[in-house]
Design a protein around this nucleic acid. Structure first.
Length: 214
DNA sequence: ACCCAGGGTCATA
DNA sequence: TATGACCATGGG
C-alpha cells in the first residue's frame, strides 16, 4: 500500500485535523518542545499557565526566573529540562532576528540551524519546520515508525533522515499534505487499542482496531 | 501498581 | 556508531 493510499484511508476515516493546535508560530515552537515524550493534554496545561502569566513571548521567557518558569511548566513533565531548552531556544530565536528574519531563510539552512540548537532534535525541528514555518518537511515520530512498519513499508529501525527522505520522495513536496498526514497518524495512533495484542495487525492492515470496536 | 506519552542529551564502549 | 541512564507529570 502506497503512502498516499494510507493517507487517503486515514483522511476518509478521520477527516481534517486542523493542526497544529496552537495559534501563533511562536506558540507552536514552544508546544513542539513541551510535547517531547509527553501527552498533549499535559502540554496544554503548561501553555495555559504561560498564557495566564502573559509569558508566551520570547523576550519575556529569556528574562524569566528559571524556578518560576519551571513551576509553570510543571504539568508538562521534565520541567527542569524543558525550562532550559525553552530559554535556550528563545535566546537563539531572538538572536536570529525572530520569525520574520528566520522566515526568509532557505529550507535546508533553516532546518540545520534549528538542529544546531541544544534541545531541538529531528522531530522537534521538523514540527517547527512544517507547522510554524510551513516548509515541506515530513515529520517522523514513533507513531509513524510503528504504523508503517506494521504496514510493511519500512522496517522501523531506520535512521530518522532515511525515513523522512523516503516519504518526501514518494509524496512530493506538499506542505498541506504533510501537515494533515502527521496529524492523522497521531490521531489514528490514539485510536489503537493497546490491550489487545491482535491490534498489532489491524491498523489499516486488516479491518480496524478502534477502541470503540472493543 | 503499572504503563505510556506527538524526544533529546550526555556518558560510555 | 550504538546502547543505556536520565529527565517527571498525569491519565489509563
Amino acid at each position: 500500500m502506497s503512502p498516499k493510499r494510507v493517507f487517503n484511508k486515514l483522511f476518509r476515516t478521520y477527516g481534517k485535523q486542523n493542526w497544529w493546535p496552537g495559534e501563533t508560530p511562536f506558540e507552536i515552537m514552544i508546544g513542539a518542545i513541551l510535547t517531547q515524550n509527553t501527552s498533549w493534554s499535559n502540554v496544554e496545561k503548561a501553555i495555559d499557565n504561560l498564557n495566564a502569566h502573559n509569558c508566551l513571548d520570547a523576550e519575556k521567557l529569556v528574562r524569566a526566573d528559571q524556578d518560576q518558569l519551571a513551576a509553570l511548566l510543571k504539568p508538562s513533565g521534565y520541567f527542569n529540562v524543558k525550562t532550559k531548552r525553552i530559554i535556550n531556544y528563545c535566546h537563539w530565536y531572538l538572536d536570529q532576528g525572530g520569525y520574520s528574519c528566520l522566515s526568509t531563510r532557505d529550507t535546508e539552512q533553516l532546518r540545520n540551524d534549528l538542529l544546531s540548537v541544544n534541545g531541538i532534535g529531528p522531530e522537534t525541528a521538523d514540527d517547527i519546520m512544517l507547522y510554524a514555518f510551513e516548509r515541506p518537511i515530513f515529520v517522523v515520530d514513533a507513531y509513524t515508525r510503528r504504523l508503517f512498519s506494521r504496514l510493511g513499508l519500512i522496517d522501523g529501525m531506520e535512521h530518522y533522515e532515511h525515513i523522512r527522505q523516503l516519504f518526501e520522495d514518494k509524496l512530493g513536496a506538499d506542505v498541506a499534505l504533510y501537515n494533515e498526514f502527521h496529524a492523522l497518524i497521531v490521531r489514528h495512533a490514539k485510536m489503537v487499542c493497546k490491550k489487545n495484542p491482535k491490534c498489532q495487525e489491524c491498523c489499516l492492515v486488516d479491518k480496524c482496531d478502534y477502541k470503540q470496536a472493543h
